[in-house]
Design a protein around this nucleic acid. Structure first.
Length: 509
DNA sequence: AAATGCGGGGTAG
DNA sequence: CTACCCCGCATTT
């Protein structure tokens, strides 16, 4: 095995980040790309699991982390074949919303988690909005140059490397744990003796999910009449932002508790009320509060405002749920970002795209937009803060503008499964020693890591980071450059969305 | 029934 | 070639 250089990966990376006080994630401190033939070998510090990653971030989790092992994500990610058995690629399905973008009395929105299974998703989309009865619509994710945001997972020795590319341009769906919790709750309910009776009641009053006076009146959501997966209601705030302030995942696995328990995941600690409180706090969302990723575009209110139903068009195809770019469906050509009125997308699209490209592997994008692109300069957050409100017609132009600076993902070594040579930059590495499909570098590289890729990260990440930084308390723009390598902070991403699983009494099931 | 992964195939730039 | 997407199949949950 040829190790190319530094043994201690840490050393090779920027040292400024080595300090423990650095606010960046450990993964972001290191310079690596999921596609690198060799990843840092001697990782001694791992990041805490991040449920809601957004933007161009990288994390290195412990191989012991259950969530990482399951390749979990709060976003609805589905497996995508990248023909690379060493790297698991997953792309975002977006979020299912009410075709009319109806707003509940409490101002919340319905934001369902798209079913991962194509078949299930089709079914899901045939259901109607529990609140207004209009058809549900799948908002595809197009945060990565018009394509869905992608997440990459790679097991390397004892570490699980995670890399995300793209900035979600849609609200967060109900998290997996929440969905599960809700389902189980429903199940319990269904089995309960009183179920039938209740069901009847619910049905007759389907319309009043949110009774203002109820116990949860302070919260946002309603009960769903349709079934567990029917929907989750979320406050708009859910969207971007705030989450990060939520200190939830500090421990290595805290997250898992959420999953395992019936409790709403992620909110280990708070009671419904509390959540609510948090929620509200963040709602107004300060322009600079998001984790980095997304932006502010959606401010709470904004999202709502923007998303007006256009024609109420019935849900478009169901199954196409996925494929945006192909453009075929959903109108979604990248540009058309939804004609559905979901302007949000459009607005950010431009920059996002720029980002995305840059994000992947590149350096700063030269594209026009890049220069001014929010992601590229810390001004972004503040600039677009309320953008939601603003006009911003976004150039919904797709990828065109960007130049391909980066290669997106899956690129690299494509032959992982077969012993062969990995091409890296200009060099070829013989990987035969490395097990074919096995842990690629693990064996061979025991200690080597070629620090090659730098270009991309720098650019991309930087921007992303800078972006993230905004959300950090003291950090200033100036710092961005310095810290750009840092990723989102663990404690940040946390969904603040509140959902009341138990309120979903619905019937089905 | 769904979620997950895998891998063959096809398409577009 | 690269980067995506679609599909079916098998395995878990």
């Amino acid at each position: 095995m040829r190790r190319k250089l530094m043994r201690c990966y840490c050393r090779s990376t920027a040292d400024p980040f080595e300090d423990s006080d650095c606010v960046c994630s450990f993964g972001m401190k290191l310079t690596w790309d999921i596609n690198d033939p060799k990843l840092p070998q001697d990782v001694k510090q791992y990041d805490t699991f991040q449920e809601w990653t957004d933007g161009y971030v990288r994390f290195i989790y412990s191989g012991e982390d259950k969530n990482a092992q399951r390749h979990l994500s709060g976003w609805a990610m589905r497996n995508t074949n990248n023909h690379n058995c060493q790297i698991l690629k997953k792309s975002c399905l977006g979020v299912v919303v009410c075709g009319r973008n109806c707003t509940l009395t409490d101002g919340s929105k319905i934001q369902l988690r798209p079913a991962i299974c194509d078949k299930a998703r089709q079914k899901q989309q045939k259901k109607l909005c529990p609140s207004c009865n209009s058809s549900l619509e799948l908002l595809p994710c197009r945060g990565h140059s018009g394509y869905p945001v992608t997440n990459f997972w790679r097991l390397e020795g004892k570490a699980i490397f995670f890399q995300a590319k793209g900035v979600h341009d849609h609200p967060r769906p109900e998290s997996k744990s929440e969905t599960e919790a809700r389902r189980s709750a429903v199940k319990r309910r269904m089995s309960s003796p009183h179920f039938s009776q209740k069901k009847r009641l619910l049905e007759s009053e389907a319309a009043r999910y949110h009774d203002p006076g109820g116990p949860f009146s302070g919260l946002h959501h309603l009960s769903c009449v349709d079934g567990p997966d029917r929907f989750s209601i979320i406050t708009e705030s859910n969207f971007p932002l705030q989450a990060q302030h939520y200190p939830s995942f500090q421990n290595p696995d805290p997250y898992k508790y959420g999953y395992d328990s019936g409790a709403v995941a992620g909110e280990p600690v708070s009671s419904p009320l509390q959540k609510s409180a948090n929620h509200r706090l963040y709602v107004p969302r300060p322009p600079c509060g998001y984790d980095f990723a997304v932006p502010s575009y959606l401010g709470s209110g904004s999202y709502a405002a923007l998303y007006k139903d256009p024609s109420g068009s019935p849900t478009p195809d169901s199954d196409s749920s996925m494929g945006p770019p192909g453009g075929s469906q959903h109108g979604a050509s990248p540009l058309s970002a939804h004609d559905r009125g979901y302007d949000t997308n459009g607005k950010h699209q431009g920059w996002k795209q720029a980002l995305s490209k840059a994000g992947d592997r590149g350096e700063y994008a030269q594209s026009p937009s890049s220069s001014s692109h929010p992601f590229y300069n810390s001004e972004y957050l503040c600039r677009y803060p309320g953008s939601s409100t603003g006009p911003a017609p976004a150039p919904a132009v797709p990828p065109p503008a960007l130049q391909t600076i980066i290669t997106t993902t899956t690129k690299v070594s494509y032959q992982p499964c077969k012993p062969a040579m990995l091409k890296y930059g200009d060099n070829l590495y013989d990987v035969k020693n490395v097990a074919g499909c096995g842990p690629l570098l693990e064996a061979g590289a025991s200690s080597a890591y070629s620090d090659l890729k730098a270009p991309e990260d720098s650019g991309v990440i930087k921007s992303a980071l800078a972006y993230q930084q905004e959300s950090l308390p003291k950090t200033e723009r100036a710092d961005s450059l310095e810290t750009y390598r840092c990723g989102s902070y663990p404690s940040y991403n946390y969904p603040e969305r509140i959902v009341h699983p138990f309120k979903y009494d619905s019937n089905e099931y």
